[in-house]
Amino acid sequence: MLNQSIKPMLLHPLQPNQIKKWNTNSLKWDGFRSLIHYDNGKVRAFTRHGTEITSRFPELAYIKLPIKTAILDGECIVFDLTQPTDQPPKYWWDDAMTRFNTKKESAVKQIATELKAHFPLWDILYLNGTPMLKKSFMERRETLSSVVKASETLSVTPLYEDGKKLFLKAKELGLEGIVQYSPEASIQLGTRSKNMVKVKAYQYVICQIASIRLKGGFGWGLTINGRYAGVLEFPPNSDVIRAFNHISKQLIRTENKGWRYLDPIISCKVKFQCFTKDGKLRSPKFEEFCTPTLID
């Protein structure tokens, strides 16, 4: 296992009305899955797809643990150090993707001074030459807490007893959601197990459809009260598209080779994960029309 890419156990999605009564719950970090391999002071890191990212994150070189070997399971999140110092540090999914996509050595050194990576952990899969997959989640958590002390690079994700209360707090703060862990469960690598579930705290907003993509796949350009909010790229059902296309012909302002621009009269309710750093909707999905002429 050590120093080889492995496929971790993935989170099984649940709806908010399916939240478990487990007393082992954590916030869902908005970054990307990272598996950290510690081998006698040397560190390597891989994504859940097996991509090695060690050279992209010089922060990993500062990890020192009181053990010989381990595989730690967690997330990579990234904080923007250029924010005003009078504001609490905030991590952004956009910044995590920027760090992930920065590969050139000189660029990595520069960006690491502005966008700082941190690795919150929730599990340990391997310790001192022995896999820990058959141990219960709580046994593994106790071991993880004894091995990892909080630092600028690593921390152990806190657990909370009340999943419903934690979910409501995550939603209130605009966070991605929660993760729930079955206390007695072992690990099945490479599976999407119902012993570790995620409940996303989706947000909703009313948008106006201001443009239609003409080439390169489906796309509706969205605005919120006149401000551009991104592109809806997940197509709704054919009846919805047909109804919109019928009305949109009367709203055309202009067009070019790629887009047709409309009077932003048609409104719709959109579900999305969060606002991106530049104020756009992340992964917007159509819910329903709000304009009377398009409502059955």
Rank of each mutant, 00 (worst) to 15 (best):
K109S: 10
G129L: 04
M132P: 00
P120C: 09
R192F: 05
L133I: 04
V199R: 08
L214W: 03
I209C: 00
L189M: 03
A210H: 04
E114C: 00
K134E: 09
G177L: 13
E176Q: 13
F137A: 12
K149P: 02
Q208L: 07
R140V: 15
T102I: 13
L166Y: 03
T153L: 05
Q188W: 06
E142M: 11
Y202T: 11
V156W: 01
I209V: 10
T113M: 12
D123M: 12
C207D: 08
I187G: 04
A170K: 05
K171L: 02
F167Y: 13
K200N: 11
V199H: 10
P131M: 12
K149D: 00
L173Y: 09
S151M: 09
I124R: 09
K169G: 00
P158T: 06
V197Y: 13
P183E: 06
S151C: 01
K149T: 04
L154S: 03
S136H: 01
K215D: 04
V147M: 11
G129A: 08
E184P: 02
V148L: 05
K194P: 04
R141T: 15
T191N: 03
L166C: 09
R192Q: 04
S145N: 15
S186I: 04
K135T: 03
A150S: 03
Y126F: 15
T153M: 03
F119W: 01
I178N: 13
S146V: 00
K164W: 05
V156D: 02
Y160V: 12
L175M: 14
A150Y: 03
S145I: 11
V179F: 11
S211M: 08
G129E: 12
S106F: 05
G190W: 07
N101T: 00
T191S: 01
A185F: 02
S151K: 10
D123H: 12
N128M: 05
G163C: 05
M138W: 13
T143F: 14
K109N: 08
E142T: 13
S146F: 14
L154E: 07
T143Q: 14
S155F: 05
G163M: 10
S106C: 09
E172G: 09
L189F: 01
Q203W: 10
A107D: 07
F100N: 10
T191Y: 02
K165M: 02
